[in-house]
Design a binder for these strands. Structure first.
Lengths: 231, 231
DNA sequence: TAAAAAAAATGATATAGATCATCTGTTTTT
DNA sequence: AAAAACAGATGATCTATATCATTTTTTTTA
């Protein structure tokens, strides 16, 4: 048994975009009527850990990070691209506060849905509830993979994991313009900014990737993947 | 913001024991008819990560660990006492294998419920589904707390966290006979056996705890809690 | 377009915690 | 009851990675 069962841990695999298709016409109308769409500038906080959770967040455009607050360093649980739900764990009856904070990496749009309306839909529409359970389980699987990545892999593996994850799941291309700083990457991989820079340079010197400024080009995806798997 | 929002991360707070109360008489009958009760000796594997998940596990008696397999070291996600459901994430439609392995710390009894029957109940009984969502969210909150503990706290904090967690949530007493070896504790806290022993000795020398063999007595719970909070 | 601020880069140093080696008790197994 | 295996304990050493200090480059602001 090795670690190759936990690749691409930074982000949830599929989108929750179509979960509302399972609602009836009437139910969709209720959602529409109890929803506002809000714009967030790059870097803004969308929800704050510990605050009262009155909304479920559907990210319609953008890219956000989901993180636990901690001093001196936060812990990034996931990065979430467009068409995903955020804040689902706060529908748990015993806890009506946000488990985590969410902030935007880039300009983003979110639809905020009233949490009581959402809960009511869960109670009355079992196939919708079933779909939400699927999404929660996907999130759990991702969190476990990430948990494994950050606690069992070392720096090279963690950075390789993130680079491939961004390529596979966010940008869907081997070349991409990273909207994150090296310090953001450090946050994401649980390592210091300096270590990110050093290991990026190693990867560059080994001709695994090409880096110029914000542009990343993965030259040897299979070798990078190997590094991510071996930790 | 500090870490005191994530205490007691080793184990899920409440029990799932009563979730079946939300079923109708007929539904409960269906569960009974599609369930077997199995005994597991101490140390036996109850389910194996990656294997086909055909059952949901309800632990009726005992104490188990839920872990991800990894070489050279596994990652313990949670320890779960009696009256809890295990294996819920495998009800996710896209993935019918166990996300994790489960093995018993002590002799245990489990009721194995057919997964398709379970899924059918979710689809037809929305308040049952809603309760299962609550349980999943509780598990998620616990996993995040543990994630934080293992990635942000250092050894003293992690060991203090486990000792208090066992006291608060499993044994419900400041004094308890630990059914785990020092090496199990290392697994649980993500540290080496030697470090567990060394830090236990420090706690003992500081008169925070009393240790004789398997017996642990927490003399200064508030100070131990403080150490767990400060990392 | 100059000045200021932020991000990236790099070398030197420090350290938490693992690993290794060894020893002593304590259970299992034969 | 002897042998073997295991759990606990302790000191010495090693290493991955953080932290600190400084410099260079890029971006933002005035």
């Amino acid at each position: 048994m090795n670690t190759h069962l936990y690749p691409n841990s930074c982000v949830v695999p599929t989108s929750a975009g179509n979960c509302f298709d399972l609602l009836t016409e009437d139910e969709r109308k209720i959602v529409e009527d109890n929803m506002v769409e809000v714009f967030y500038k790059k870097g803004e906080i969308i929800c704050k850990q510990g605050s009262f959770a009155s909304k479920i967040i559907f990210l319609s455009e953008g890219l956000v990070k989901v993180y636990l607050e901690g001093s001196p360093k936060n812990l990034v649980l996931a990065i979430t691209p467009a068409n995903n739900l955020v804040g689902l764990p706060s529908i748990y009856e015993g806890n009506n506060t946000f488990l985590y904070s969410v902030s935007s990496y880039i300009d983003s749009w979110a639809k905020l849905i009233d949490i009581n309306v959402f809960k009511q839909l869960l109670r009355q529409n079992a196939s919708f509830a079933s779909k939400i359970i699927d999404i929660l389980n996907e999130n759990t699987a991702q969190a476990y993979a990430r948990f494994f990545c950050l606690t069992r892999k070392q720096l090279h593996g963690r950075l390789a994991d993130i680079l491939m994850c961004l390529s596979d799941r966010i940008f869907k291309s081997l070349e991409y313009d990273l909207p994150l700083s090296r310090s953001d990457l450090g946050d994401l991989t649980g390592m210091s900014t300096e270590s990110v820079i050093r290991i990026m340079k190693e990867f560059k010197d080994d001709r695994l990737i090409e880096v110029s400024g914000k542009n990343i080009n993965i030259l040897e995806p299979e070798r990078v993947r190997k590094i991510s798997e071996l930790g």
